[in-house]
Simulated scan of single mutants.
Amino acid sequence: MSRCGTIYGVGLGPGDPELMSLKAARLITGASVIAYFRKAGRPGQARQLVDTLLPPSAIELPMEYPVTTEIALDDAAYAETLREFYEDCVARLLAQTEQGADVVVLCEGDPFLYGSFMHLHSRLIDRVAVEVVPGITGMSGCWTASGTPITYGDDVLSVLPATLSEARLTDAMRSADAIVVMKLGRNLPKVRRALATAGLCDRAVYVERGTTAQQKVMRLADKPDDEAPYFSMILVHGMGRRP
């Protein structure tokens, strides 16, 4: 019987290539097939992170999102379009493993934290061998870049997607000790308003492209505009018990 390959979901860490795990680097340098998500017309952040590690002989399978912000998240067409996209990605990956190839799927941050790979994992897990390699999360890279611990003592940390409604964001912010707000982009004005209502604007820190050469860290109050790329976050550091 021919051997079926394994699919590896490999976490790349927060953006600095040196923050990849040894296991991630070993799998990437030995990869015969490499897959990665990207926006159409872009090289893809994940692919750029491994540029110096990838063997020239590796087969590349870019998986290009059919939509990003063109359709509203709550539109049924958005879910259906992405569902078809992930099914197509799964078919392409399985075609490689059925030929005996192992496939390394590149994942920014950690594969099981708000990443696209989880949507492949749920479709693959009962059909092929899958191994997940964890990575340093983008949020830990950002709070390290801020130079201040995110939590102290008994602080409760809340991770909030900026895509939530303003009311839900405000309620969650009011009940949290420390906060990470992800998926900023065009949601930054809404997040600012929620922070203001929760009385947290003065404690909010904006981090853009944390741990990379393009890193920016500033108090949110000092940010003069509402432009925020995908790789940006807002932090509210905890102020809990200290010895």
Rank of each mutant, 00 (worst) to 15 (best):
S2W: 12
T6D: 07
I7D: 10
Y8F: 15
G9L: 13
V10H: 11
D16G: 01
M20D: 01
S21D: 08
I28P: 10
T29A: 14
G30S: 09
A31Q: 11
S32C: 07
V33P: 05
Y36D: 10
P43K: 11
R47Y: 11
L53C: 11
M63N: 04
P66I: 10
V67H: 01
V67S: 06
E70Y: 01
I71Q: 06
T81I: 11
L82T: 06
R83L: 12
R83E: 15
E84R: 15
D88V: 10
V90N: 09
L93M: 13
Q96M: 15
Q99S: 13
G100S: 02
D102C: 03
L106P: 05
C107V: 13
F112M: 15
L113W: 07
H119T: 05
S122I: 12
S122F: 07
S122H: 14
R123A: 08
R123K: 12
V133M: 10
P134E: 09
G138I: 00
S140H: 01
G141K: 01
G141H: 01
C142Q: 00
C142K: 00
P149R: 02
P149C: 02
Y152V: 00
Y152L: 08
G153K: 04
D155T: 01
A162I: 01
A176L: 03
A178Q: 04
K183S: 03
G185L: 05
L188N: 07
L188Y: 06
R192H: 05
R192S: 11
C201S: 14
R203D: 14
E208K: 10
R209G: 00
T212F: 00
R219G: 12
L220I: 05
A221H: 01
A221T: 14
K223T: 02
D225M: 12
D225Q: 10
D226W: 08
A228T: 04
H237W: 03
G238A: 00
M239V: 09
G240Q: 04
G240R: 04
G240H: 06
G240M: 02
R242Q: 13
R242K: 13
